[in-house]
Computed example of a mutant assay.
Amino acid sequence: MIARVLIIAGSDSGGGAGIQADIKAVSALGGHAMTAITAITAQNTCGVSGVHPVPTDMVIAQIDAVLSDIGTDAVKIGMIGSAETAHAVADRLEGLSGIPIVFDPVMVATSGSALADEATVAAFGRLMRIVTLTTPNLPELAALGGESAVLAYGCALLVKGGHGAGDLLTDRLIEADGTETIWQDARIDTPHTHGTGCTLASAIAAGLAQGMRLPDAVSRARMYVRAALSCAPGLGQGHGPMGFPVVPFSA
């Protein structure tokens, strides 16, 4: 049976990040993507001009509709919309048994626009207590209190090095038992990086849904993102969307 991935995240009208990027990644890697939309955004490659959170009860209704019929093999959480929704989603998902959950703690868009207020960021702790993996970039990791603070919640941590300096990009996976895996690659020089975090987290969730080990799921997801960066179509006047590689990748 095809691997099922439930994506809880916001919509990006420009098609580069959010739910749109999530669906592309899961589909390209051979999974079936289902969605619970937490917010509607008006955005393009230059920035976010509007955010409309979806009411919490409607977010939960979407989750319940999917789980009660189709079910899921993994969950990906991205932009959460509000502190109330963060707590409600945590309440709903903590009852799932044996289902891997990947949390991308979205705070700021690639353009620099804020996508989470202080109360929502404070509520991220509820989610990190129940997830399998948290995937912050370096500024997000600092806002969450650093590596030790995230690992204290009991989840694995993928420290993404995209915001670091230099031509060499380093990503570090620290599993709950302390096992560490490090990847290093030459940085791909492109302004078209919109949706990298969303895409990576969803690609990891797809791998976990397909029964891959966490390091293998991360490895394949990184390969997919690098391929997507390399074939970016060059759309828009700012940080454009990545490309859409459609051939599944092996770890």
Rank of each mutant, 00 (worst) to 15 (best):
V131M: 07
V26N: 01
E175V: 09
V246W: 14
M107E: 09
M242T: 03
V247C: 05
R92G: 06
G30R: 11
A61S: 11
L168T: 15
G71A: 08
V159G: 01
A122R: 14
M242Y: 06
E118P: 09
R126S: 15
L96P: 01
V48P: 07
D64P: 07
D167N: 12
R126T: 15
L29Q: 03
G207D: 05
T199Q: 00
P233R: 07
D91S: 13
T45I: 06
L169R: 14
G71Q: 07
A86T: 14
A3P: 03
D216L: 12
G95W: 13
V131N: 01
T38C: 10
L169K: 12
A251S: 11
G95V: 13
M34Q: 02
T196G: 02
V5W: 04
L168F: 12
V150C: 00
A221F: 11
I77S: 07
V26I: 15
P191Y: 10
V26C: 03
E84M: 12
M223N: 10
S202C: 11
T41M: 06
A165I: 13
I8Q: 00
T41L: 05
L235I: 13
V246C: 07
T134R: 06
L208I: 11
L229G: 01
Q184E: 15
A33M: 06
G162T: 08
S97C: 15
I204N: 02
F124M: 04
L115H: 08
S97F: 13
D117E: 12
K76G: 04
V247D: 10
F244W: 14
A221I: 15
A88W: 13
I7M: 05
I80E: 00
A123N: 05
G145A: 08
A83N: 03
L157C: 06
A228S: 08
V108I: 15
G18N: 11
L29M: 07
I174G: 04
G95M: 08
I130L: 12
I23R: 00
A123I: 05
V121I: 15
L208R: 02
V26S: 00
A25Q: 02
D189Y: 13
K76M: 05
A251M: 06
M79F: 11
A156Y: 09
V75T: 06
L200M: 07
G95F: 13
L144R: 02
D22P: 07
G50T: 06
A88Y: 13
V5T: 03
V131F: 06
D91W: 10
A251H: 12
P53E: 00
L133V: 06
S250V: 15
A156R: 11
T181P: 05
L157M: 08
S82Q: 01
D117Q: 08
A232T: 09
S97K: 14
T38K: 10
P233E: 02
S82E: 01
I37H: 02
K76T: 06
L229A: 03
R222V: 13
L138R: 09
A227Q: 03
L96N: 05
E180N: 10
L168M: 15
